[in-house]
C-alpha cells in the first residue's frame, strides 16, 4: 500500500487511527457542555435524528422527478430554485440560497466545494465522505473527467463540463437528464431512479437503475 493510499483510507475506514482518543474527547466535551448548561442533551438527539432519518437525497429526487414531469414547475425551478424547492417544505440551513443547474446533451454540471464542504443539506442531506475528501476537492476543478471516471461516468468529448465551486452561500443542485425509456414511469418510480451522485453531478441517471459498484 502506497503512502497516499494509506492517507486516503483513514478518511473512510471504520478503524480511525485515533478512534478511542476521539471517543473519549467527544464524550468529555459533551458532559462538560451539558454541565455548564451550554447544551440541552435532548437538542443533540434532534439534530442527529433529523439528519439520520428525515433529511436526505430523496428530497432532491422528488424535486428532480417533478421537474421531469411538470414543465411549468421545471421553469419555476430554474428561475427561482429556492422558492420552487420550498414548495416541498425543503428549506433552511445550508439551503438558504438555491440554484439549480440543468444538464443537457451539450452541458454536464458537477458541484464541489474546494475550500470546505458546502453542500445543499435540505435537498441532499449531509455530504458523503468522498465529497469532503481531499481527492475530490483537489481534482474536481482541474481534472473533472478523471473524477467522473472514478465514478464510472464517461461523457462524450463534445459535452462541456461546468464545475461549480461553492465558494459562498449559494447552494447548487444538479438537474440530471431524464433517461430514455422512462416515459411510462410515474413520479414515484422516477424518484427511485434518481441517485444522490446524479444530483451532485458525478454520475448520470440510468434506466434501468445502475447497481451501485462496490468500493474496493
Amino acid at each position: 500500500m502506497s503512502s497516499h493510499d494509506h492517507h486516503h483510507d483513514h478518511d473512510h475506514d471504520h478503524e480511525h487511527p485515533r478512534l478511542s482518543e476521539l471517543q473519549l474527547r467527544v464524550k468529555a466535551l459533551e458532559s462538560l457542555l451539558i454541565d455548564k448548561g451550554l447544551v440541552d442533551p435532548a437538542a443533540l438527539d434532534i439534530f442527529i435524528d433529523t439528519y439520520e432519518t428525515k433529511v436526505g437525497p430523496r428530497n432532491g429526487a422528488q424535486v428532480v422527478a417533478k421537474a421531469w414531469t411538470d414543465p411549468a414547475f421545471k421553469a419555476q425551478l430554474l428561475e427561482d430554485a429556492s422558492a420552487a424547492i420550498k414548495s416541498f417544505g425543503f428549506e433552511g440551513r445550508q439551503g438558504e440560497h438555491m440554484v439549480v443547474l440543468e444538464n443537457t446533451p451539450r452541458v454536464h454540471n458537477m458541484v464541489v466545494c474546494t475550500l470546505c464542504s458546502c453542500y445543499p443539506w435540505p435537498v441532499l442531506g449531509l455530504p458523503p465522505v468522498w465529497y469532503k475528501s481531499a481527492p475530490y476537492r483537489a481534482r474536481a476543478v482541474n481534472d473533472p473527467r478523471g473524477v467522473l471516471r472514478d465514478f464510472g461516468t464517461e461523457l462524450p468529448d463534445d459535452v462541456e463540463i461546468k464545475v461549480w465551486d461553492s465558494t459562498a452561500e449559494l447552494r447548487y443542485l444538479v438537474l440530471p437528464m431524464r433517461p430514455a425509456g422512462t416515459e411510462h414511469l410515474g413520479e414515484d418510480e422516477l424518484v427511485d431512479l434518481i441517485t444522490r451522485n446524479s444530483m451532485i453531478g458525478t454520475e448520470v441517471v440510468t434506466f434501468p437503475a445502475k447497481v451501485p459498484e462496490a468500493a474496493e
Binding site: 492517507h7 486516503h8 475550500l115 475528501s133 481527492p135 476537492r137 483537489a138 476543478v141 473524477v147 474496493e216
Partner: peptide, 12 residues
C-alpha cells in the same frame, strides 16, 4: 485544495 495534485483517486 482546488487544483492540488497527489491525493489519489476519489473513492466511494
Amino acid at each position: 485544495m482546488g487544483g492540488m495534485h497527489g491525493f489519489g483517486p476519489v473513492v466511494q
